[in-house]
């Protein structure tokens, strides 16, 4: 079998026409990044005081200063910790469960909100279950995580509007983007080549299977629509402290372990993360259809930003699960992987 060629600088594979490697073995995403860097010379990165400026402008306008999306993973739990302890805000923590969240993650959330003494909203719904099942049954190339993120962002904006909260805090890392305006739009530049095929498949799936399904009437067609609707409904912005803080993941994991008794889950992909059960299926499908996942994109950006090493990324992204695990999860959706 021909060995998959991957970029010499990051970890993205060649998947023409979306991502291609040049003669030096460097991928098109890295080339574009280097060019953008040349033109943005002198542009300062986001500073913590920039974050404080945003908080100062928006805090104290309602019962809660902000809504913190907390999945129980290291990034969102540390974001909640910083908001309460470092920036002394009064947050409303918010966790949603589409039926596939792990008990490890939910335990982390519960411990965090208890120890920090913050108000907490927990929303559990099986609303998305049929949609997830359809992706598998129709063998669609749509990315489960993309559809889920549209749903949960729509939900989060609705909650923010309901509680009149001006800031939504996410635990997103610099791996998604380092430009705050891009990240505040939920991090996906769906027009970028590396996202193009995935975005198209998701769009096609919505067009074919969601748009005319009465159960999903009004389900957003894409993330832009989520943002547009949210903007009309209530003015709130999404920010993540991790975009502004120069504290690396190892350091904040130590802090939340110590302060919030936070724990890594027994099994997760990528290594050292906390994701829902469906994430395993989403990763399996993305690897199968595209040769890479959104984690490869995120880690590649972290490599370009000098935050992690290439070796570290390759190690953390090694597939650590098998089909048996996939089938245990898929059974809940009435599906079986062959």
């Amino acid at each position: 079998m021909e060995e998959k060629k991957i970029c010499k600088k990051c970890i993205l594979p060649e998947t023409r026409p979306d991502i291609w490697l040049n003669e030096e073995g460097v991928c098109s995403v890295c080339v574009v990044y280097e060019n953008e860097k040349k033109f943005s010379k002198g542009e300062k990165g986001a500073l913590e005081t920039d974050f404080i400026k945003i908080l100062e402008k928006n805090k104290g306008k309602g019962e809660y200063d902000c809504l913190v999306m907390c999945s129980g993973g290291k990034d969102s739990t540390s974001a909640l910790y910083y908001i309460k302890e470092r920036y002394k805000l009064n947050p409303l923590a918010f966790t949603f469960d589409h039926g596939f969240e792990t008990s490890d993650a939910l335990e982390n959330v519960n411990k965090a909100v208890d120890k920090l003494g913050v108000d907490f909203l927990f929303f559990k719904s099986s609303f998305m279950k049929d949609m997830f099942a359809k992706i598998l049954k129709t063998r669609s190339k749509a990315v489960i995580c993309h559809l889920c993120s549209m749903w949960y962002m729509d939900l989060t904006y609705k909650i923010a509007a309901k509680y009149n909260v001006p800031i939504i805090i996410a635990g997103w890392t610099k791996g998604q983007s380092v430009k705050q305006p891009v990240m505040s739009k939920c991090a996906c530049k769906s027009d970028s080549p590396e996202y193009a095929s995935m975005a198209k498949a998701t769009k096609d799936f919505i067009e074919e299977h969601v748009k005319n399904d009465p159960k999903y009437k009004g389900f957003p067609q894409n993330m832009e629509e989520v943002l547009k609707k949210a903007k009309k409904r209530h003015k709130s912005m999404v920010v993540s402290p991790h975009w502004f803080l120069p504290i690396d993941a190892d350091a904040y994991v130590e802090t939340i372990k110590k302060e919030l008794d936070w724990k890594y889950p027994e099994l997760s992909y990528p290594a050292k993360t906390t994701n829902c059960e469906l994430n395993f299926i989403s990763v399996y499908n993305s690897k199968k259809h595209y040769g890479y996942t959104h984690y490869d994109l995120e880690m590649s950006r972290l490599i370009r930003e000098g935050i992690i090493s290439r070796e570290e990324a390759l190690r953390d992204l090694e597939i650590n699960f098998d089909k048996d695990l996939l089938n245990v999860i898929a059974k809940k959706l009435g599906y079986k992987f062959e």
Partner: peptide, 12 residues
Amino acid sequence: DKKIKIFLSNKG
């Protein structure tokens, strides 16, 4: 040490 190693290894 870690930051320096990341920088050098990513620099190739």
